[in-house]
Structure formats: structure tokens, C-alpha cells
Amino acid sequence: MDMLTFNADNGYLEAVVRGLKASLLRRQDYTNLAQCESPEDMRTILNSSDYGLWLQNEPAPLQTQALYDCLMNRLVYDFRSIRGQSYAPLSTFLDYVTYPYMIDNLVLLLMGVLRNRDLSELLDKCHPLGLFEGIATLTAIHSPEELYREILVDTPLAPYFAECVNVHDLTEMNVEIIRNLLYKAYLTDFYQLCVERIGGMTGSIMATLIAFEADRRVINITLNSLETSLRKDERMMLFPRVPGGLDDEIIQRLGRADDLQAVAMALDLSSTYRALFQRAAERGEYSLEDQFLEFEMKLLRESFDAQFHYGVFYAYFRMLEQEIRNLTWIAECITQKQFAHASRVVPIL
């Protein structure tokens, strides 16, 4: 039934997003960009793409930071214009897409408060998509308790916070745990929104994408906690679980894993992640994170094969973010004269 009713509210925006996706940079563009001698050469190549308009007012020696700001402005502009034209439930869906950035921002602010840093300085470092109404008032805050109360009042993340973070947990040790708990609550909630409240084609496409996101976090949490004092039961508690993700058996094994060997053994049971893990081991210069990104880009591309669902909005903003990462990586490599590494990007299309 999606086919018959989807376009009434969302047909225009879906087509807009598909058009924007077609203008993302391709493999060939990255090869050309990697051969640039200076960021100024990059501008010449980017001028022929959609970024031309955004870069034209930048002063002549293009800095990496200026490039990053331009790209980010474009992302925010695209997001805001699409969010502004959307109807419910697409608008709710798009709000959920911004929550991960908001979680990161709040964790950043929390770190700042705990270390007694000036928050107005940190606000500039926040991801612009993760800003919320009233974030400016947070500069007046000096204690974690006040921040906790402000978060509960001002942000849409309040249910997650109330559910999994106690005000007494706000210590520097716990910050990473809090971030993972928030992500876990967010992914579960997002899964529920897509599969149960929206359903249909959106549900089946987003289920795959969210399950992958959850699996990636499970594996990363395991790898990052191997040499730390995190208890095994605490580690299990941090694993985000959604239907369609890793099997119980694998999760149990990852929860018990003590070293890299045990992780590899556990992932041997899943054909997808075994392949990613092996390839990361074989190709030294591409880390596991790069393999995950490459696989994610494949999933995102595949989501464009189906029509009449919200997955394309999620996929497009994920792809655009990856493009920004790629371009800043190339710019950074070129500025530091590390030309050999400049081609080490994750192509999107």
C-alpha cells in the first residue's frame, strides 16, 4: 500500500533526495582529487560539482578547516530544507536521524562540564545537526547536576537519559558508558519507530540498516573494552540489541571474549562480519572501521534500489557525511604532503 499513498506526502522529497544522491562524488572524482597538489587544486575540481556554489566565496588559499565548514554548511542546509518541507511521520523520522549527533554533542558538553571547561568554547565544536533549542543557555551551567536537569527539560533525548543515566553516574569514568547506553536506547527506539510505527517498506529497509548499526557498535564496544577494566556483565549491558542483528550465540561469545583471537572466533559464526574481519586483517592500510564503512555504504546504496520508503533520507545523509569525511581526509593529507595516503578513502557510489 506504500506504493499508492507514499507519494501524496513524500513523493517530492524522495525524488529530491534521489537527485541529490546522484550528484555525490564518484570513484573517479576521488582519484582526481587525490592527485591534487594543494587544497586550491581541490577547489578547481569541486567547482564542477554541487560544492562550487558553496566554495566560491572562500578566500584564495583554501584551508582544510574552511573546506570542512563549507561542506558542513551544505549538509546542514540540505537537511534543514528537507526537514522543513516534510510532513509527519517523515519529520519525526528525520528528527531521529539527528539524535546520534545530539548524543555526541551532549557527551561532549558533559565532558566539558566535568573538566570545568568553558562551555561556550565547546558549543562551536558541536555537530550543527545535533543542536537543539536552548543549547545556548547551557553556557551558564557549571555542574553536572544542572546539565542533567537541562537535558531532561530541553532535549528530545530526555526519555533515554531518564531511562539509563542516573544523576550520580555523571563522572568522567562513566562518560563513555553513558554514551553507549544512550546509543543503545536510541537504536532500540529508532527500530521501534521504523518497524512498528511506520512499518511497510520503510520498516524492512531500515531494519537492515539499524541492525547493521547495532552490530557495528557491538563489535566496536567489544574491541574497545578488551584491555580495560570494564566488567563482562557491564559490557553485555552496553550491547545494543535489535531483531535481525547478530545471533545470541555470537553476542554471548563477544560478551565473554578476552582477546582479539576470541573476537575473531566469535565473528567466524557470522558470514558477513567474518569476511569484513578477514579483509581488515589482510589489507593492512584499511582498518576494520574502514571495512565497516565500506560495507555500510554498500547497504546504503542498496536501499536506493527500492522506492517508496524513508530509508533513502537516512541513507543520503549518511552518504553525505561520509563524503565530508573523505574530502577533509584528502585535504588534510594534501596539506601535510602525505600524498600517498590521499587515495585512502571510502568511495560512496
Binding site: N7, G11, Y12, E14, G19
Partner: peptide, 18 residues
């Protein structure tokens, strides 16, 4: 009418970039 709004909305959106 139903067919036109399904086609038309996609057509309008897609023609922005192409």
C-alpha cells in the same frame, strides 16, 4: 488523478537536479 499525483510529485522533485 491518483496516477498523476504519484507520477507528478516524483517528477517535480526529480527535475530539480535533472
Amino acid at each position: 488523478a491518483w496516477g498523476i499525483f504519484i507520477t507528478g510529485s516524483s517528477l517535480v522533485g526529480a527535475s530539480i537536479q535533472a
